[in-house]
């Protein structure tokens, strides 16, 4: 698993089954391309965000789309319950006629398509579980769910996630976004040592 995303593997050439390839890599049709230079990718991402501000007057987001989806699903299963809850109702009233016709829902659908296309063209689409060499698949998936759940709670409390708050709000010098961003890094670094076994 550790070789899946190793750019060194692609640097050694795409030749299938070359001497460099481990048995694991040989199972794949071709090696993944190296990632884009981070500063170049950052400028690209920044221009996308700028376009959102200039065209729409709003920033990017991600967690809000999951909020719309969860609220819609809750409303489908238990309509009265969802309507009686301020949190879910907020999302249900948001869309243009339908809770899923919300701006962030369509933006996230685009993220799925754009991410898939980029990954496909770079040879990086493959069914795999990302984990450290010492972690088991089951443990990794349990931690992924746990981390996701914490993220869901945190993003709702903070009114946005890394996309909507840190990135979008950061660029607009939004005070709350900057406080949020500092705390994200603080929280992640605080638990990095405890999680080392899962990643290193």
């Amino acid at each position: 698993m550790s070789t899946v995303l190793d750019p060194a593997a692609s640097a050694s050439g795409r030749a299938h089954g070359s001497a460099h390839d481990s048995a694991h890599d040989a199972a794949h049709a071709r090696a993944a391309e190296p990632y884009m230079n981070p500063y170049v990718a950052g400028v690209g991402l920044g221009l996308v965000l700028l376009a959102a501000y200039v065209i729409m007057g709003r920033g990017l987001g991600a967690s809000g789309a999951i909020g719309s989806f969860v609220s819609w699903l809750t409303g489908e299963i238990a309509p009265a319950h969802a309507e009686g809850n301020e949190f879910f109702r907020g999302y249900l009233e948001e869309g243009a006629g339908h809770p899923l016709k919300a701006w962030l829902v369509f933006e996230v659908l685009g993220v799925l398509v754009g991410g898939f296309l980029s990954g496909l063209l770079a040879g990086r689409v493959r069914a795999t579980v990302e984990k450290g060499p010492r972690a088991t698949v089951n443990a990794r998936l349990a931690w992924a769910f746990t981390g996701g759940a914490l993220m869901g709670v945190g993003a709702k409390l903070a009114r946005g996630c890394t996309s909507g708050q840190a990135l979008s709000g950061g660029a607009m010098l939004n005070a709350g976004s900057w406080a949020f961003m500092m705390m994200v890094f603080a929280g992640a670094y605080a638990l990095a040592a405890a999680m080392r076994r899962q990643w290193r």
């Binding site: 981390g147 914490l150 929280g187």
Partner: peptide, 9 residues
């Protein structure tokens, strides 16, 4: 909490 979730998940 989101930072915790980031490094855990």
């Amino acid at each position: 909490v989101l930072g915790f979730g980031f490094v855990i998940g």
